[in-house]
Each structure stands twice: as C-alpha cells, then as structure tokens.
Amino acid sequence: MENVKPKMIVFDLDLTIWPFHVDQCMKPFQLDCLKKVKDVYGNEYSLFPEVLDALFKLSKENYILAVASRIEDITTAYLLLNFFNIAHYFTYIEIYPYNKSVHFKWLNLKSCIPYNQMVFYDDDVRNIRCVSKLGVHTLLVQSNIGLSYKLIQTFLNPDK
C-alpha cells in the first residue's frame, strides 16, 4: 500500500455512522423538543457514540469528508443527516441504491481526488471489496461498534 496521506475520507451510513438500517426504520421521523430523533412510535434513533467527536476532529484536521451510501430511502437519509446535525461536515454526499463503485466514480469526478488518496469506512465486506478494486484504501467497521476516531486513526496514523 502506498504511503500517501489521504485527502478524502468517505463513510457509509447504515451500521457505520448510525446503528440501524434507514430502509428498515419506521417512518416518519421527527425531532422532539429535546432534539432526540424519534419515529412515529416513539422509538429513538442516534448516531454511534463516537461519531460526532470523530467528524469534528477530522474536519478540524482539514480532511474532505464524504458519504457513500446505497440507501434506497434517500429522502430519509438526508433528513437524518440534518436531524443529527452532521450534514455540514460532508463536502460530498452520494446516496442512492447503486454499486459503491458508482458512488466513488462520482466522488472522483466531482472532487478530482485520485482514488489512492481516499479512505473508505464501511461495515459491509462486499462494499469494501468493490471499492478497494478502484485503489481506494478501505477499512471494515464492526457493525455493532460503528465508527470511532481510534478506528479512523488506524489508517491515518498507523504508528500511534
């Protein structure tokens, strides 16, 4: 693997940023007076515990952040990004139900960042395999733990 510092860090959403599948949730969602995201039955939804801190730190380190997700319910995915107040961290957002290589081709075209300067975090091995064939550095996220700053650092700073 080349030792090139990445310019773009890309994240999947389901089971990576948040601990659920958007397409399997009860809808509609709402934001209550305590700023908690709930569905029509009162079920509460949240991000994985370390996501906000990780996104904040990465943005302060001037990485370009992006989303690549195969969610079919695109509207709800965008709604949740806004309800969780994390949409502003992402320069590029590719959410549609296609093969992840399509997402990355668009990220490459829009950003002009070469694949070997991108890192992708996802819980799905199929997506990891697909994207790594493009030359993107990939890391598998444990779907029961989700994204953490420590996991991100395993690639960005392997000596720490």
Rank of each mutant, 00 (worst) to 15 (best):
S46W: 12
F90Y: 07
L15K: 03
N85F: 07
V131M: 12
R129Q: 13
D53N: 12
S132F: 14
F90S: 01
D123N: 12
G42C: 14
Y96D: 02
L31P: 13
K7W: 00
Q30S: 15
V102E: 13
S59L: 13
F104W: 09
S148D: 05
G135W: 06
E44V: 09
W18V: 03
I64D: 09
P158I: 14
T76G: 01
N144W: 04
E72S: 09
L80T: 02
L109W: 09
D159C: 11
L79P: 00
V125A: 03
T91V: 09
Q117N: 04
A68Q: 05
C112G: 14
N108F: 12
M26P: 10
K105H: 05
E44I: 12
M118H: 10
K150H: 06
Y63F: 15
I64W: 15
L79Y: 03
L147N: 08
S101Y: 06
K160C: 15
L79V: 09
I95K: 00
N43A: 12
N43E: 13
D23T: 09
L58K: 13
L31S: 07
D159K: 15
A87M: 09
A77Q: 02
D14F: 00
A54M: 14
P28W: 05
T16R: 05
A68F: 06
D12F: 05
S132W: 14
N85A: 14
N99C: 11
P49T: 14
D12Y: 06
T75H: 04
E61L: 15
S46L: 11
K150V: 08
K38L: 15
V119C: 08
W106M: 11
M26W: 11
I145N: 00
V51Y: 04
K5F: 05
I17T: 00
L31N: 07
M1I: 10
Q24M: 11
K100Q: 02
D39W: 13
L31F: 08
